[in-house]
């Protein structure tokens, strides 16, 4: 996990090492193949792909992290609030199931329809779209912990619910939160790049991996170096997060 976090921080910090301005166009320098001056080549507007890739990494990771937090914090809260009361729990379950019936990306699009197209609303939409699933996972984990014997004995000993929740239940949820939080992050990464790819992420032409993929797709045959770095980077990140999460669950 620390290794994954380190890679993330590294990608975010590397934006400051970009050799050129990611937005600076240069019409006399379009679609140059990789060279010493431009290690990843240039795109259709003559912008340096390496610089765009590095800045895009920062942008993409930051908005995916923000989206993941928007998903994780309210979900955990909701699951805890409902855990105290069975009636509330049943109502919550029904609403969650209804929200789950709306496919993830479609829910994000509904939220985008309301908020309008911008970078912030894309992030919020992606994060909110993950809340139903995440709440259900945490709910299941809380139910699992609640059925343990020590909770029952603590309750019998007269511990108040708040004490139980913070002292006994929450610490036992941390592994689930970490593992499933990482998985949620990878969904957020995939979905926010998808929305940007579809042109829903606000200003066009900003350095972001999804936007770069869309730009690179148009010129892929002539200049594959534009779309390759962000495509490979997204895949590699999601691959490593998945592998780590699977290892945590104890399979393989």
């Amino acid at each position: 996990m620390w290794r994954l976090l380190l890679i993330g921080v590294l990608i975010i910090c590397l934006a400051w090492a970009a050799p050129y301005d990611p937005l600076k166009t240069n019409t006399s320098n379009q679609l140059q193949a990789p060279s010493a001056a431009h290690p990843f080549g240039t795109d259709i507007l003559g912008r340096d792909v390496l610089s765009r890739f590095l800045h895009g990494g920062q942008q993409t990771l930051l908005s995916a992290s923000a989206a993941a937090l928007i998903a994780i914090i309210p979900s955990t809260g909701l699951a805890f609030v409902a855990a105290g009361d069975t009636r509330l729990q049943r109502i919550q379950l029904l609403i969650l199931q209804a929200l789950l019936a709306i496919p993830n990306l479609l829910l994000a699009l509904v939220i985008l329809t309301v908020l309008g197209r911008s970078e912030v609303s894309a992030t919020v939409a992606v994060g909110l779209g993950q809340i139903p699933v995440f709440t259900l996972v945490i709910r299941a984990a809380i139910l699992g912990v609640q059925s343990e014997g020590y909770i029952e004995s603590a309750r019998a000993a007269g511990a108040n619910p708040l004490w139980l929740a913070t002292r006994h239940v929450f610490p036992n949820l941390i592994p689930t939160l970490a593992t499933y939080g990482a998985v949620t992050f990878s969904y957020c990464l995939m979905n926010s790049a998808a929305l940007n790819f579809l042109g829903m992420g606000g200003e066009l032409g900003k350095p972001e991996w999804g936007v770069m993929l869309a730009e690179g797709r148009a010129v892929f045959r002539a200049a594959p170096w534009v779309a390759l770095p962000p495509g490979i980077a997204i895949t590699a990140l999601i691959w490593s997060i998945n592998r780590w999460a699977v290892a945590q669950r104890g399979f393989r």
């Binding site: 995939m190 993929l213 495509g231 999601i238 691959w239 998945n242």
Partner: peptide, 18 residues
Amino acid sequence: LSLALSVPIYWSGTMALL
């Protein structure tokens, strides 16, 4: 299996087109 889970669909689609 791992590839199908980690490659974004817009990326594999682009590669297939190419």
